[in-house]
Amino acid sequence: MKTRHLVPLLVFAALAVLLGMGLDLNPRIVPSPLVGNSAPEFSLPRLEDPARRFERSDLLGRVSLLNVWATWCVGCRDEHPLLVDLARSGTVSIFGINYKDQYRPALDWLRRYGNPYVTSGYDAEGLAGIDFGVYGLPETFVIDPQGNIVYKHVGPLDPAVLEEHILPIVRSFEGASG
């Protein structure tokens, strides 16, 4: 008889644990089917030099970061100094996709806050962004030397994400090539 009275308590405890775990999840992070697969083909005019193009083949041969950014994106402004520092340290090549932005303000933005990108593709229509499954800026992809997406981070980068997730991947490829 006594154990029967414990049942509601146990059900409650189980539910509390389950819901507590749920609180820890971020529903905005949607697992991307692209991670582990080849990066999609794209060809965009370069922001700094629209006569030239930035294509998937430019990413090959070394591990790189592909950062999707825009001047209207507040999170991009937050993470920008970190990208500038990372580029300056020479740890990894950073490429950009300037997503649904305006041409002039984007160039001014880079001039004002520094340009960490080897180059940025100007994706005015956002079609390259859609091919990369972009849904919330900023987004950062880690792309291996063969052009596969090995990791994706949605939201502004911070030192912890960089140190725990991104740099270990980058280093693993450096070790392999050098």
Binding site: V30, P31, S32, P33, L34, I130, D131, F132, G133, Y135
Partner: peptide, 8 residues
């Protein structure tokens, strides 16, 4: 759609 964004 699912190739880009998953079954989500």
């Amino acid at each position: 759609m699912t190739e880009r964004y998953g079954d989500f």
